[in-house]
């Protein structure tokens, strides 16, 4: 059994068996990255280019670490220091890099569908590391993996996504991944930051954060993406914090102990207060650790599909 796809462009192209295979493989890699020597020679004859046309810290670091743990050769590219500034097109940039015998491309781009576009014009394996506000499949995979690790099979479980849905590629990928696994999903956030199409996906929307938290087993809290907002979507950060922020008092007042997740970087004091982000209910750092294992699994499986 192998993956049903040759590229990882989005969760919408995957099926349930793919997710299962990725998670099973990630289990094995998680054991490996906790060994005294955390490296395996599997991808030693594979070269991977990380093409980041948009800023990234943890995703880029996580991918690079995963590649190095698999012994792949890695080349890094960031748009700010490249010929993109001189007017080179995306396809030209990538084809030039591929001419140097690169086997796989990890692509982050601000344009929606950049990965799909590139897959139609090049012959390499592409992993989407975030395309605009569209999808961020590896983040969704590591989120689901972390949920399973904490609450077991997520089919039938209640998962809440809180915050800025409109500007979040993490949200859409998460929703698609959770739906594939049969989870119950609820969305909570300011009306202005919840796109209308979400109701077409059959999702429930809740505006009362406390009610929503009482309903869920896991709350995945998203970052307010100020940098993507060209207009004011809510009156003030203070109001957002008051209506949708989670603090220790609220957490303690819930009927049950829920699991809290956040894809990072956290706006401390906005989405989550510091004591909540650092509490024993928060699995944020587990998400980061699992990110390396899941990305190792994705690259391992895709490299075999070549």
């Amino acid at each position: 059994m192998s993956l049903s796809v040759d590229n990882l462009l989005g969760i919408k192209y995957l099926n349930q068996k793919d997710l299962q295979l990725i998670f099973e493989t990630a289990d094995k890699f998680k054991e490996i990255i906790n060994r005294p020597i955390k490296k395996v020679p599997t991808l030693r004859d594979i070269t991977i280019a990380n093409l980041f046309f948009e800023n990234s810290t943890r995703t880029k670091l996580s991918f690079e670490l995963a590649q190095k743990r698999l012994s792949a050769d890695v080349v890094n590219f960031s748009a700010s220091q490249s010929s993109v500034k001189k007017g080179e097109t995306l396809v030209d940039t990538v084809n030039n890099i591929l001419a140097m015998k690169v086997d796989m491309v990890v692509l982050r781009h601000s344009s929606v569908g950049a990965g799909v576009f590139l897959s139609k014009h090049t012959k390499t394996t592409i992993i989407n590391a975030g395309d605009g506000t569209h999808e961020h499949p590896t983040q969704a995979l590591l989120d689901s993996y972390t949920m399973i690790e904490n609450i077991g099979d997520i089919g039938g479980k209640n998962i809440l996504i809180v915050g800025d849905i409109t500007h979040s590629r993490v949200a859409l990928s998460n929703i698609l991944a959770l739906k594939l696994q049969g989870a119950n999903i609820k969305i909570c956030g300011p009306n202005t930051l919840i796109p209308k199409y979400l109701t077409n996906l059959g999702l429930e929307i809740e505006f009362d954060i406390k009610k929503a938290l009482n309903w869920c087993d896991v709350a995945n809290v998203l970052r307010v993406q100020n940098e993507r907002m060209d207009v004011n979507y809510f009156p003030s950060i203070r109001e957002y914090r008051k209506l949708f922020g989670i603090d220790k008092e609220m957490l303690n007042s819930l009927d049950k102990k829920i699991v809290l997740m956040h894809p990072g970087p956290i706006n401390r004091g906005v989405e989550l207060t510091s004591d909540v982000a650092d509490s024993d209910q928060s699995v944020i750092l587990n998400q980061v650790e699992n990110g390396v294992a899941v990305r190792m699994a994705v690259m391992y499986l895709l490299a075999q599909n070549k």
Binding site: T25, K28, E31, V40, L70, Q304, K306
Partner: peptide
């Protein structure tokens, strides 16, 4: 001990090399 990720035939087989636990 699982040896899957240390094998020398990666990419040379038709079927997927699926790992077991260590």
């Amino acid at each position: 001990l699982d040896i899957t990720f240390f094998r020398d035939d990666f990419g040379r087989r038709d079927e997927l090399l699926k790992a077991n636990s260590t």
